[in-house]
């Protein structure tokens, strides 16, 4: 479901003397249905960068990235957006807040965008919030004032609310307590069982070992640093 071939990426900092930072070189990775693959490697090895390139908010400089049969590299904005709505989910470490929008609405939004009616979408969103131990009194509030862990769980709720065939998880269990962490790992296992292809970054080794089928060391694809 995720096919990465010969992918390379460098950042050019035009306003800082035109420094060129090569980050990834020659990456080949594939993730099949029902498989959870972990990206490992030290900070700066390009794990999150690769995730963002698959999600499409980082540009792919060279090589090919195919998700559910669609080429991401060089795709039109609407193709990427269509893929995000129908096939690909991304749980990042940070929740991008929209002023005034209540928690329940934030979680239900992917369902509404997929055409589900409001009553059914809200019911499903509430079930997901309850499962992730978000207290009911918070559901009608905007998450602006929520704790880091609560915002993180909201991100997870949003990412798992649709049964998407491809999931990208960037540290989904960071800043979560043991109980919530277990719920997230259950969600990951369920997604695998229904055939989702999952690529994840898990700093917690125990969490990684419990859900991932194999690991890919990103330092294999890290080019030697040089200053142009």
């Amino acid at each position: 479901m995720i096919e990465i071939r010969g992918v390379g990426k460098q950042f050019v900092l035009h306003n800082q003397g035109g420094i060129v930072l090569p980050v990834i070189q020659g990456a080949d990775i594939s993730v099949c249905r029902g498989e959870c693959v972990a990206l490992v490697g030290a900070s700066g090895a390009g794990k999150s960068t690769l995730m963002r390139m698959i999600w499409g908010n980082y540009r792919c400089d060279e090589g090919s990235i195919r998700v559910a049969g669609v080429e991401i590299s060089g795709a039109e904005p609407r193709q990427v957006l269509d893929l995000r709505g129908k096939s690909m989910g991304y749980v990042s470490q940070f929740l991008r807040l929209i002023p005034r929008v209540p928690t329940r609405q934030i979680v239900a939004e992917p369902l509404l965008a997929a055409g589900m009616n409001e009553a059914a979408a809200f019911a499903r969103a509430e079930a997901m919030l309850a499962r992730l131990n978000i207290p009911e009194r918070l559901w009608s509030l905007s998450p602006t004032t929520f704790s880091g862990g609560e915002q993180q769980r909201l991100n997870i709720a949003r990412g798992f609310i649709l049964d998407l065939p491809v999931l990208l998880l960037d540290e989904p269990t960071a800043s979560l307590d043991a109980v919530s962490c277990a719920v997230v790992l259950d969600l990951v296992c369920e997604a695998k069982a229904r055939g989702a292809a999952i690529l994840g970054i898990f700093h917690d080794a125990a969490a990684r070992d419990s859900v991932c089928d194999r690991e890919i060391d990103m330092t294999r694809f890290t080019p030697a640093r040089r200053v142009a």
Binding site: F11, V12, L13, H14, R52, Y58, R59, L81
Partner: peptide, 17 residues
Amino acid sequence: GLTDQVLDDPQHAYTQL
């Protein structure tokens, strides 16, 4: 390009600025 791509990974010097 895609809004989050232009904002998160700007390519042109002016956009980066």
